[in-house]
Design a protein around this nucleic acid. Structure first.
Lengths: 243, 243
DNA sequence: TATACATACATGTATATACTTTTCCCGCGT
DNA sequence: ACGCGGGAAAAGTATATACATGTATGTATA
């Protein structure tokens, strides 16, 4: 009677499978309401908490949409977006079998401008760490990275030797990233950038602007400038990897 | 006493924040065991099920590793890559409240060069569809897209009117993408590109090279050139929202 | 007629409780 | 010294119950 398969997996997984199967076979039409939790309880003979867990996990996996007080619905097909991956530059260079070296130009504690303070979502003007590092691939500069770091999350950032440890590695190790914002654009090199990267003023550069959060707090703001003629961001991604 | 913040969010979220914060500040060292569920119950004054839910969600988000019968540990730093999203340009422009228009320059069936044939992983030299479209935002050209399409997957590509339907929409609708490869670089505009995009030769452009697969077959190869001064790719991503 | 209230129903959260499964470790016997 | 067995501890699952919160709807009243 139970309508659930007799496998060794936990009950809530069976309920998830049961629901996914019925969505897949079109038993429940795409725009009507699914059975309520209590109806599942009656139909399947499991407790409401178990049904609830199954429904909650399917919702967070993007299969369902639930409205409190209303009901459960099948989610529309996923937004048509593709993802690309951005890796740690030091690791990438080494992975290519090349030599990586970095040169620290600036590592200091600063009082931010009003605008920068705003980007950090600070209420008051608080001190920040500031670093500028050039990354070399086989003694050819390929990337200029400027970072601003929140001292409340990474208190000893300015004590590090970033010619030995990559800034990215250090930050990833010290604090978990819960959210990332990226803006990628193509810009001509200004005079200072050109000097540091040993390119002509006006050469094409890939500019990657990144903000990371740890919980509700902005952890870092980075401006990564790649020499267009020497570097590109690449990735291969399989959307099919699921829950 | 409770050590949990007094906000309006649900209890299990507070427990999650509490744990994430203590990981972030290094209160619990990276290689020792975290408190057990029952210890959290004693320390925070909430039920074990609530603690369990918080721990379970942090585990599925990749922050923790749990071993039944052993304990809870801080997960090693995640693979150091971050993901950014690339959306359909037509949809993006409309979402910004601007007017989108596209102009089809080329839509033809061609015999590919040897190199292109190789990129498609073709054994023999087979015909391809080829399209070149300029996308406008408020009558200003922002992107030049050149696509090569595998006729065996999308047989009637050359019969479409891509000034009405975006190529991206059409392709997404016709064939499921199982894998995507991206290469992003910054390049100066060549003469032809500059003419189509109404910019100076040598201006900075964002070049996005994309290959998509359907199963083991290469479905499309695209070269998307964005005007650097008029367009940037942006995204905000939460690693923890994924399952 | 229109607004306010009551009610029913849906999902969301929290707790107490019980039992299962897995692992670790200590002590005992050989 | 070695192995074995049992108990303690930890996470995993399942249930019953209660209450919270949001939504829709019908009814009574102004």
């Amino acid at each position: 009677m139970s309508a659930l398969p007799d496998t060794a997996s936990p009950l809530y997984e069976k309920v998830k499978d049961y629901i996914l199967t019925n969505i897949g076979t079109g038993k429940w039409s795409k725009d009507r309401k699914l059975p309520s939790e209590n109806e599942f309880v009656a139909a399947l003979g499991v407790s409401r908490m178990t049904v609830h867990r199954a429904l909650r996990e399917l919702t967070s996996a993007g299969f369902l949409i639930r409205l409190q007080g209303v009901g459960t619905f099948i989610a529309p097909p996923r937004p048509q977006s593709t993802l690309i991956e951005i890796n740690n530059i030091a690791a990438e260079i080494v992975a290519r079998g090349n030599r990586h070296r970095s040169e620290v130009l600036v590592l200091e504690r600063i009082t931010p401008t009003k605008e920068l303070s705003l980007s950090f979502e600070f209420a008051r003007r608080a001190a920040l760490y500031h670093s500028v590092v050039v990354n070399f691939e086989n003694d050819l500069p390929v990337q200029l990275e400027e970072r601003f770091v929140n001292p409340s999350l990474i208190p000893d950032y300015d004590k590090q030797d970033f010619s030995k440890t990559a800034t990215y590695d250090y930050l990833m190790q010290k604090t978990p990233v819960t959210e990332v914002e990226h803006i990628i654009s193509a810009v001509p090199a200004d005079a200072e950038t050109a000097r540091h990267l040993a390119i002509d003023v006006g050469s094409c550069c890939l500019l990657l602007h990144r903000r990371t959060w740890t919980g509700a707090v902005v952890a870092t703001i980075s401006k990564l400038t790649y020499v267009g003629s020497r570097y590109s961001l690449g990735s291969r991604y399989s959307p099919s990897r699921k829950t």
